[in-house]
């Protein structure tokens, strides 16, 4: 019977082994999909903008809509000052979006023979999403301290609180601040992981019912309908989670720009 293991899609395979100083730095299928996302986005943007027509064509329209969408997002949550982080937010958004969307291919063969081929969603691994969110926090803390100096610590000492309450409020603010990168990464990772497992579980039911023989194959229409619905939902989630990640990045960057609010 066909393999219906729903978590096989998250397996990491080495594509090109590489070991430096005892560290396993092999080029994996995860790295391949990150490269695919980066290269395809770069190509799309380069192709879309190389004409620079006054009246945009189809490709240029996509690039302009994406630019306008992210620029509005940055401006509405971090103000015009936040636009200096536009390249960072745009890169994050488009990388996560491309990674999520490439993950929607159920079967995407790697161009290397002899490697186990299956689709892969880079954002379904917490190490990837946590790295992205730690990058955001490093910029928030780094830029916040660089721009505001010690005033950045005002973030943990909100104004208008009776002095005695700082014993409780400051630790709460610190915990709240430290929980940000985790909630940012866990939300993206959990959404992608859960959605893709659900998709494969229902797809597995179709195979199992088909293999059960006789009239059971007809019952397989039910999980098939479910898979179609879930696929549509997953496309929505893929976009929505990239959007949520980017907009929360903007909100956190706003704290670095204006720590006392």
């Amino acid at each position: 019977m066909a393999d219906t293991n729903p978590i096989k899609q998250f397996e990491i395979h080495e594509v090109a082994p590489l070991e430096i100083a005892g560290l396993n730095l092999a080029f994996t299928n995860s790295a391949f999909f990150m490269l695919l996302a980066t290269v395809s986005v770069t190509l799309l943007m380069a192709l879309a903008t190389n004409k620079r027509a006054l009246v945009p064509g189809r490709g240029q329209s996509i690039a302009e809509i994406l630019y306008g969408f992210v620029a509005d997002m940055v401006r509405s949550s971090a103000g015009n000052e936040g636009l200096r982080f536009f390249p960072f937010v745009f890169t994050l958004f488009i990388f996560i979006l491309a990674g999520n969307m490439f993950g929607m291919f159920p079967y995407l063969p790697l161009p290397i023979p002899g490697v186990d081929n299956h689709g892969f969603t880079i954002t379904s691994h917490i190490i990837v999403t946590l790295t992205l969110s730690m990058m955001v926090m490093a910029i928030v803390v780094g830029f916040g301290v660089y721009k505001n100096g010690f005033k950045f610590l005002k973030l943990f000492v909100p104004a208008g609180v009776p002095p005695i309450l700082y014993i409780i409020v400051t630790p709460i603010e610190v915990i709240s601040f430290l929980s940000r990168p985790i909630s940012l990464s866990v939300r993206l990772f959990a959404n992608m992981l859960a959605g893709h497992i659900l998709l494969k579980v229902f797809a597995g039911f179709i195979v199992m019912l088909g293999a059960a023989g006789a009239a059971w194959g007809i019952v397989g229409i039910l999980p098939f309908a479910m898979v179609i619905g879930l696929t549509a939902l997953e496309f929505l989630v893929a976009f929505l989670q990239a959007y949520v990640f980017a907009i929360l990045t903007c909100i956190y960057l706003n704290d670095a720009l204006h720590p006392a609010h």
Binding site: I175, S176, L178, S179, I182, S183, V186, R187, A190, N191, L240, V244
Partner: peptide, 21 residues
């Protein structure tokens, strides 16, 4: 649906980080 998930993670993560610290 998305907002509900967001509130859920925000709360859970706060408790977990507090306990971990």
């Amino acid at each position: 649906w998305a907002i509900g998930l967001r509130y859920g993670t925000e709360f859970m993560v706060g408790v977990l980080v507090g306990a971990a610290i």
